[in-house]
Design a protein around this nucleic acid. Sequence first.
DNA 1: CTGAAAGCGCTTACAG
DNA 2: CTGAAAGCGCTTACAG
Lengths: 341, 341
Amino acid sequence: MRGPTIADVARRAGVSKGLVSFALNNRPGVADGTRRRILEAADELGWQPSMRARSLSTNRAFALGLIIAREPSVMSADAFFPMFIAGVESELGPAGQALVLSIVPGEDAELAAYRSLARDRRVDGVFITDLRADDPRIALATELGLPAVTLGRPDSTSPHPAVTLDDDPGIRAAVDHLVELGHRRIAHVGGPDRMLHGTRRRESFAAALQSAGLESTLSVSTDFSAAEGAAATRHLLALDEPPTAIVYANDHMAVAGLAVAQSAGVVVPRDLSITGFDGTEVGEHVYPALTTVATDVVEWGRASARVLLQLVTGEHPDDLELPPARLVVRSSTAPAPHPAT
Amino acid sequence: MRGPTIADVARRAGVSKGLVSFALNNRPGVADGTRRRILEAADELGWQPSMRARSLSTNRAFALGLIIAREPSVMSADAFFPMFIAGVESELGPAGQALVLSIVPGEDAELAAYRSLARDRRVDGVFITDLRADDPRIALATELGLPAVTLGRPDSTSPHPAVTLDDDPGIRAAVDHLVELGHRRIAHVGGPDRMLHGTRRRESFAAALQSAGLESTLSVSTDFSAAEGAAATRHLLALDEPPTAIVYANDHMAVAGLAVAQSAGVVVPRDLSITGFDGTEVGEHVYPALTTVATDVVEWGRASARVLLQLVTGEHPDDLELPPARLVVRSSTAPAPHPAT
DNA sequence: CTGAAAGCGCTTACAG
DNA sequence: CTGAAAGCGCTTACAG
């Protein structure tokens, strides 16, 4: 079951094991002819250096870690991680690195998972996603000696490089778009305030309204789930003066909101305009097709992987800023039903 | 950076390294007092055995592999993998095993990924998901010496244990439900024929129609994407005698079909009944809420992980059959518009 | 019940 | 430019 080892290659090439190692890792100090002979011998034997042995002697795992804290039941609705991971993989594979993935049910289990990954030295570095207010993982990664990259900039000072993608221009564009269509009562259905991207989208929304000279009193927090998005929509539509437009912080809530409106006889976009966030496939295939704010999540994965890879190989990469979120206008937005006052 | 080693523990406990190893893996042959002394010493030093060293000497990776072949762009719409992985993780974590995940763009890259995982001995076993007709991975896993478990039963003989979840009762229940509502022209929008679960759902559909004494002439194949689900629906609705009900092979296509119907002025479920498959959250939050066929994907992940874990520890687990798919009736199905002839 | 030693398959100073 | 040897941190026969 065990294949040929470096000793077999050395014997066949008539050199020492050390030299085979040098040739393999093409270090200087091996005569060209010798190197060729060694590589040939390796080839003939079908030898592949044992990753385990390399791990033990070089003290590296050749793997990166991603830990996701989510209830299993909500994972099916996640628009972010599958694409992010696909992007990460497209960089890791060619680099000979593996991705160790961990999905844990909550935040306590999440911290334990980081510790366990570090204890077993399963990975050389980690991605920190879903940044929260005062995120304990920033310090934990440092404490554990785990190189890390954060997705977005933490709200506290962080020693880890950040790969950022600014939601703000997208949210502002959505609000501006609605304002131009004559909307004056615009509501926001946002994520939890503990999540930085929840807070920031909310702040962008408020700032955009303010720029337009409007008040932002209609803003509700959810857990990003379709169920709470639906509940928030029901609440908003039952108001004495319901909004004529709703800016949702993700597509799933927007789709759920659309269903709530429809079931209440509110016609989108005639009576109510809505916008989503994420640019998911499902948003493209509801009726009316969802106007949304899109980001390039696959590229975010790729870029994050590249930065983390640099970090674990001893480089000191700078923060990296990706193209910001952008508005994608489809059919769920239209002129406000009542002319502005 | 390197922590205490087994030698430090041995010294502190006043025994040999070998004995520490025996105590750790609680093998017989260590006096109780000695064992206690050793464990105490380990505890005081905060020693954790090095997984890398264990890997090298025991020839195990303490990790399992999952390879997914998908275009990155369609990952966001995947209802299966995030939940499946969450289930897998819930078993692996406690067992001290890690999950190595690989997402590759196509089938060639997929086979290469299995080879690469095997070559680097990164994992002790693999999950084979998304079974296809005459699936080459069945033989490949054997060739590579990779213990494997298949999700579902392959169409060829397989040496690997299968963890199955029968779609058939769910599809039949959906068709029966529609027939009872008076539908006679029922169409199927299914997956690709190369995918076993595409074929099997189609066959279940045809068999159920036949049992009801109906013909099954309306059946179209897609790639499971919302876009093709929408196109198939457009095609069906444009027929001279359009169906009064459509059974979709997944929720995303059903949601897209719903949008197509709506945009054509076809009211669901008054003019057209539709059913989905997967029991996704989004299907619950469209209007009307989608009648669907649900499976317990998280449990499928758990069960598959348990079986694979048994396999890699040298046991010979039997095939495992999970509770079958079941119909969840919501609001997208109603009596047929025209009484049966 | 316990110890001393070899082995897993690499890498890396250290000599020459 | 090349070789012999030690070391990474465990596990596992083999002796006693």
